[in-house]
């Protein structure tokens, strides 16, 4: 009994929100972590300085390298407009899953992230929005309690503040180590978005490589507007599972952004170089009249 009280108190402390007070630039130490060499698609060796200039898109073949959450935000936000939300939010190892705590520690050390999503408030061309950006370097961007909670809080923040919401998805699906509670985050995030939508909130979902499983089957698929980066793998079931199930090879381009667009699940495919201006346009088109977003 005392033990369970102690555990609950620990949970409360761990989940307690800590909101940063100031709008800043994105901390450089985070951004500097994302660096690449060889293009996995065409094999081209591109100097890192050039990749930074092309927003980490291969200049030879157009391959969009997955980018970390802070790096992504740095490509989009106006300077000095970044304010991170729930930066320290983590969840306990509720299943007492063997080895999970150690793996989390290792992932935190390797990426400088506390979880697989960064949520923030920031401006694009002077227009304020709320962002949730998944980071596939952290447990493949898989959704556990903390990721689901941070996304939900971002939705609620946008709802309260009357701001548009932009989510960049990149996820392998559910966080296995959190079992059924990770599954429940699908319902939690979808329910929050349903409410946000009913209150007139604008939600732009941007699908990036890869977006699969429980994230595809929840918040990633619920945008008022859905964008995708070129060539991203997007689906519910992974290609390997499908091949095993149906016993045949999948066609070229199956579950890629272009395939989804063709099948009616994406409004537009937007190359990274045009992402900021596209989001800016969408924010402008949905601007509430008579409201000050400055």
């Amino acid at each position: 009994m005392r033990d369970s009280f102690r555990q609950r108190r620990e949970r409360m402390i761990q989940l307690k929100t800590r909101r940063e007070g100031k709008e800043t630039d994105i901390p450089r130490k985070h951004i500097a972590k994302a660096v690449f060499g060889k293009c996995p698609d065409c094999g081209a060796m591109v100097p890192k300085t050039e990749l930074a200039r092309t927003l980490y898109v291969c200049p030879k073949c157009g391959y969009h390298h997955p980018v970390g959450a802070y790096l992504r935000l740095s490509m989009l936000l106006d300077s000095k407009s970044f304010r991170e939300l729930d930066e320290k939010l983590t969840a306990p190892n509720a299943l007492k899953f063997p080895g999970y705590d150690e793996k989390l520690q290792a992932a935190r050390k390797a990426t400088g992230l506390t979880e697989g999503v960064v949520t923030a408030r920031g401006k694009i061309d002077g227009r304020m929005a709320v962002f949730a950006v998944l980071d596939s370097r952290f447990f493949m961007g898989s959704m556990g309690v903390a990721l689901g909670e941070k996304v939900t809080r971002a939705v609620e923040y946008a709802d309260r503040a009357g701001l548009p919401l932009i989510i960049f998805s990149a996820s392998g699906g559910a966080r296995m180590q959190e079992g059924i509670l990770s599954l429940m985050q699908m319902a939690k995030t979808s329910a929050a978005l349903e409410r946000f939508g009913a209150h007139g909130g604008l939600y732009i979902s941007v699908l990036t490589h890869p977006t699969t499983g429980g994230v595809t089957a929840s918040f990633a698929s619920l945008g008022d507007v859905t964008l995708a980066e070129p060539g991203a793998l997007i689906g519910f079931a992974g290609p390997r599972v499908i091949e095993q199930t149906i016993g045949q090879k999948l066609p070229e381009g199956f579950q890629r952004s272009e395939y989804l667009e063709e099948h009616g699940f994406v409004d537009q495919i937007v190359p990274r170089s045009q992402m900021k201006e596209t989001l800016s346009l969408l924010l402008r088109l949905h601007e509430k009249r008579g409201e000050d977003h400055g």
């Binding site: 698929s221 519910f236 199930t245």
Partner: peptide
Amino acid sequence: AYPGLEAEARGQGEAIA
């Protein structure tokens, strides 16, 4: 939910979401 080719083509993820 069925992990199949047509299921994906018709938006299994969207349908569940």
